[in-house]
Design a protein around this nucleic acid. Structure first.
Lengths: 166, 166
DNA sequence: ATCCATTGCTTCGAATCCGAAGCACAGAGA
DNA sequence: TCTCTGTGCTTCGGATTCGAAGCAATGGAT
């Protein structure tokens, strides 16, 4: 019904829908595993993982928020929870009094290692099982390109109607 | 740091991260466009789109929920909102008194057509601009396969421990 | 030195979301 | 017929989420 749009071709539509659907389903399953294995939400896991991966084991709040694609206020909330549980610490940055440096604690790393195997198991079961190494490689390549493009594109995407000084 | 996990190889990790990141960023941008163009959340748009695409223009609640990967209670909530705005109607199914049949209204279709061009514009700008037709095709193919696999996999993935009467 | 636009983060209120519990109907089986 | 289990949806309570507004510190510019 209704094909009178400046529509996408079926291939594009298919790719788009599949992308959304896969990420939604994957997220759900992962979320469940994380909840059971370490009582973590997906965002919390992402935060800990990022901190754990960082050489210094710490990041600024804003960088974390941008990294996981999350609102700043949302991050503040989650950081509070993680701090209460002793999985991270928050200290004002020495250089810049405004900024807060978030670091992962030993307990935080412990939770991470406790949760990791199951996490990977879910990914293998759900995501990688049906893909060949070549598929995975090309997926990473293509999506990586898209990500870079999105990251570099000016935040405001939607309405670039031409506009002079006016 | 910490590579002592039953880890994924870097290629897999890259694909996974890119997938999550792309879908998050895309979702954000789309959400924004939909909000501005038609005061719709992403879920609401998905629901309307699904109904609009359906030959009969209607679906059961449960099928909608499964389709868009959403909780049933969440769907009830969103359906209320859409019904209040006159974009859908809910009527008990004739065959099965338990089931609710959701249909899109004319007003609903109008909103859809009002919102569509911008939606597609965002997709083109953000998602397709950096991809060749071949990329899109492969993406759709690979992700489609993953989706089918996920859909066919028993809902409970992680812990299918055997369980008798106890 | 003083302003002031910017940046980093938090607080606030309202909207959204989910799972558990509840209600009503359906479809067996005895 | 009369259960009993399962299905479909909603209600409820609590947790999570976001954007707007607020506060504090920064880094120029005057």
């Amino acid at each position: 019904m209704a094909k009178a749009h400046p529509s996408l071709d079926p291939t594009e539509l298919g790719a788009y829908f599949a992308l959304i659907e896969v990420s939604s389903l994957l997220r759900h399953s992962v979320e469940q595993q994380l909840r059971e294995a370490g009582d973590l939400s997906y965002v919390q896991f992402q935060l800990l993982a990022r901190l754990g991966d960082s050489p210094a084991g710490s990041h600024r709040m804003t960088d974390l928020a941008d990294g996981v694609v999350y609102s700043r206020s949302g991050l503040t909330y989650q950081a509070q929870l993680l701090e209460q549980r002793g999985l991270i610490t928050r200290t004002p940055s020495p250089n810049d009094e405004r900024s807060t440096s978030v670091s992962i604690t030993e307990a935080g790393r412990d939770v991470l290692t406790r949760v990791f195997p199951g996490h990977i198991a879910v990914l293998n079961e759900l995501l990688f099982e049906s893909l060949s190494p070549a598929d995975v490689s090309m997926l990473g390549d293509v999506l990586g390109r898209v990500r870079d493009h999105m990251r570099s594109t000016p935040p405001r995407s939607a309405a670039p109607r031409r506009r002079k000084t006016e």
